[in-house]
Write a protein that binds this DNA or RNA. Structure first.
Length: 284
DNA sequence: CTTTAACCCTGGAGGC
DNA sequence: TGCCTCCAGGGTTAAA
């Protein structure tokens, strides 16, 4: 499941093979994704140059002269560079072919992903309804411990779900939410509004370190990304300390990792390293 | 406004 | 061997 590091790796991979190339064909063999692929595609974008490729949260933004393609990989999506005439696999839904013979395929078994079209006359891309309410980018300078403190000041839900919402900071999906809280030694059931300054400092650093480490582990091109493991995403999960480690000994203290469910999502944590209440010296 | 639950979809796992 | 059921999960949307 692609999280921010995988999406960023995909972004830079596409950039490295298709930047400034003209789109010579776009084939759609499955329109039914998270939302139907708009009828105006591919005509609206065909024959135009790929001007830039950016990322906002887990959304990929492919800029062409007439507008932007918005691509989300959902749960199971990936974009790979393949040989132009290679066989289509099951769940290959869309192909983009550029003038330099770069051929990109969107593969998405569960079809939770999306490919949308935002014409330039509809306004700035970042004002698109899907993008305008997103929190700050975790790896940018405007993400600080204060970002967390001020946003969570009145949040009564637990810190894990508050992080996952993406209204405060984007890119922290289910895997990295558990991983970041473990690294910051914060119990996932802590009410978000009870986050202390020290905890916010640790959590801020933990989120950055977790995402940056995953990013550094990824390949630098789409081919590397795939060759490393065969399945996109799998490589990153190898480094998980708690995610899907229920019953395994904590790498810090050896205590069995626990699994709980929060908002119908699995959360993993070490009950000893991430206590809910801070230890107070006993009165004897 | 907040919080919860349903929904989209397929592959994989487990029961029989 | 196969069929049935259940579940995971991101993120939007409808309902409470």
């Amino acid at each position: 499941m692609p999280e921010l590091p995988e999406v960023e790796t995909t972004r830079s991979g596409i950039e490295s093979v298709a930047h400034k190339q003209r789109l010579s064909s776009m084939l759609i063999r499955q329109r039914q994704l998270r939302w139907p692929v708009p009828e105006e595609l591919p005509d609206a974008v065909l024959g135009h140059q790929l001007i830039s490729i950016n990322r906002r949260g887990k959304y990929l933004l492919l800029e062409f002269d007439p507008g932007h393609l918005i691509v989300h990989l959902g749960m199971s999506g990936s974009i790979r560079a393949v040989e132009p005439d290679s066989l289509w696999r099951t769940h290959d839904h869309i192909q983009w072919l550029f003038d330099n013979q770069t051929c990109l395929r969107l593969h998405d078994p569960r079809r939770f992903g999306a490919v949308l079209w935002h014409p330039r006359e509809s306004g700035p891309i970042l004002e698109h309804p899907l993008l305008q309410k997103l929190g700050v980018e975790p790896l940018e300078d405007d993400f600080t411990p204060e970002t967390l403190l001020s946003a969570f000041k009145r949040k009564k839900t637990n810190i894990k779900q508050a992080l996952l919402e993406g209204k405060t900071v984007v890119g922290v999906g289910n895997i990295y939410a558990s991983e970041s809280l473990f690294l910051a030694r914060i119990n996932p059931e802590l009410p978000a509004c009870e986050l202390t300054w020290q905890q916010a400092v640790r959590l801020h650093k933990a989120i950055r370190d977790t995402l940056q480490n995953a990013l550094d582990s990824g390949g630098s091109t789409l081919r590397d990304y795939v060759n490393a493991t065969g399945e996109p995403g799998a490589y990153f999960e190898l480094h998980a300390a708690v995610y899907e480690k229920e019953g395994h000994p904590c790498r810090i203290c050896g205590t069995a990792i626990r699994r709980i469910v929060q908002g119908a999502r699995a959360t993993y944590f070490c009950p000893k390293c991430q206590p809910l209440k801070r230890k107070r010296p006993s009165q004897g």
